[in-house]
């Protein structure tokens, strides 16, 4: 099934290569520019959430504090996995630019799997914290922690679904427009989500409260 998709897609791509995309004043693609702006806006979103957490992380009167619940080795492992997924995303983008659909699909799938693994790790972590007595409404620390990391988790989830959908669209040859660019856009988003996690991991987990 993938093989036929590869052939069909190659033809499709050739057509667009001739086409050469649209003229823009700056030569930048509209889509990419929009994605950058969106990510710029997302920076402020996470900025707000991180600020909230930083303000509230010490506020857990008579309840569990951050350093009492963290499991740094585990979170380090899952952070590393998310980082690796950025690498596989890069490979996917490179393959897409080579118009190698098969390899693109492989790396997109691996990225999606690693992303799912990360979210699974987060679900595991949340469950453990909850069992240890840290509910969502237990303290300001817990509310702001779950909100911040939960928001990030939702972003990863959306990213994984996007990745899987792109794989599906490539297989079915249903991408309107420049395939490599679509993969690249999803890649931009994915890298952004990764970078935000590095920030969260450093500020939330590594710097002692």
């Amino acid at each position: 099934m993938a093989d036929t998709a590869v052939h069909a897609a190659a033809g499709h791509d050739d057509h667009h290569a001739d086409h050469g995309g649209h003229y823009t004043s700056t030569g930048l693609s509209n889509n990419k520019l929009a994605m950058w702006l969106f990510l710029g806006s997302e920076c402020l979103l996470f900025g707000g959430l991180i600020s909230t957490y930083m303000l509230y992380r010490g506020r857990h009167t008579a309840n569990l504090g951050p350093d009492q619940v963290w499991d740094i080795p585990f979170t380090s492992a899952s952070s590393f996995v998310l980082l690796m997924s950025s690498l596989t995303m890069v490979l996917a983008v490179t393959a897409a630019k080579r118009r190698d659909d098969r390899t693109t699909n492989v790396w997109l799938s691996v990225t999606a799997l690693l992303g799912s693994l990360f979210v699974a790790g987060q679900v595991y972590e949340f469950t453990v914290f909850y069992r240890e007595g840290l509910g969502y409404t237990t303290s300001l620390f817990s509310s702001s922690f779950y909100t911040l990391t939960g928001f990030h988790g939702v972003h990863v989830t959306v990213g994984v679904i996007m990745l899987l959908a792109v794989v599906g669209m490539i297989i079915r040859n249903r991408i309107p427009g420049d395939k490599a660019e679509v993969v690249e856009l999803v890649g931009l988003y994915w890298h952004f989500v990764d970078i935000v996690w590095i920030l969260i991991f450093t500020l939330v987990y590594l710097i002692p409260a």
């Binding site: 806006s41 997302e42 920076c43 402020l44 979103l45 900025g47 707000g48 959430l49 909230t52 509230y56 506020r59 857990h60 009167t61 969502y136 409404t137 303290s139 300001l140 509310s143 702001s144 909100t147």
Partner: peptide, 27 residues
């Protein structure tokens, strides 16, 4: 996005019992 964060906190406060602005919890 900044007001979005604020409104999210408000929504969690009002609809899902979070305590972002509950002073008794230290907010």
């Amino acid at each position: 996005p900044v007001i979005t964060v604020a409104l999210f906190l408000l929504m969690f406060q009002r609809s899902f019992d979070a305590t972002f602005f509950t002073v008794e919890a230290g907010a």
